[in-house]
Simulated scan of single mutants.
Amino acid sequence: MEWRGDGDDAMRLLMDELDQADNMSVSREGEGCRITVKSDSGTGSMLFYEVMPGVILTYNDFHMAECYSGFSRSSDYLSVNHCREGRLEQLMPGGTYSYTSAGDLKLDDISHHAGNYVFPVEHYHGISIGFDVAACSDGVREALGNQAPDVSELRRRFCRGGSPYVLHDFTEAEEVFAGLYHVRPAIRRPFARLRALELLLLLSQLEYDESCHAVEYFTCAQVQKVKEARRIMVADLMSIHTVGELAACVGMPTTAFKACFKGVFGLPPYAYLRSYRMERAAALLRSGKLSVAAIGAQVGYDSPSKFTAAFKAVMGLTPTSYRRGQ
Rank of each mutant, 00 (worst) to 15 (best):
W3L: 15
D19E: 11
N23Y: 14
S27Y: 08
C33H: 04
I35D: 03
K38M: 10
D40M: 12
S41M: 09
M46H: 00
G54I: 04
G54E: 06
I56G: 00
L57Y: 03
H63S: 14
A65P: 12
Y68L: 10
L78V: 12
H82C: 07
E85F: 10
E85Q: 09
R87S: 12
R87L: 03
L88H: 13
M92T: 06
G94H: 03
T96K: 00
S101F: 13
G103W: 07
G103Y: 06
K106Y: 04
L107K: 02
D109L: 15
A114T: 08
Y124V: 11
Y124M: 08
I129T: 01
F131Q: 09
A135K: 04
G139N: 14
V140P: 10
V151Q: 01
V151L: 02
F158W: 03
P164Y: 05
P185A: 12
P190T: 02
E198G: 06
L203W: 06
S204D: 09
E207G: 15
E210D: 13
E210W: 11
S211G: 10
A214K: 11
F218T: 02
D236L: 10
M238G: 15
T242K: 05
A247W: 02
T255E: 14
F261L: 07
F261H: 06
F261A: 02
K262Y: 14
A271F: 10
R274N: 05
S275L: 08
A282H: 02
L290G: 02
Y301P: 08
D302G: 14
K312P: 08
T320R: 10
T320F: 12
T320G: 08
Q326F: 15
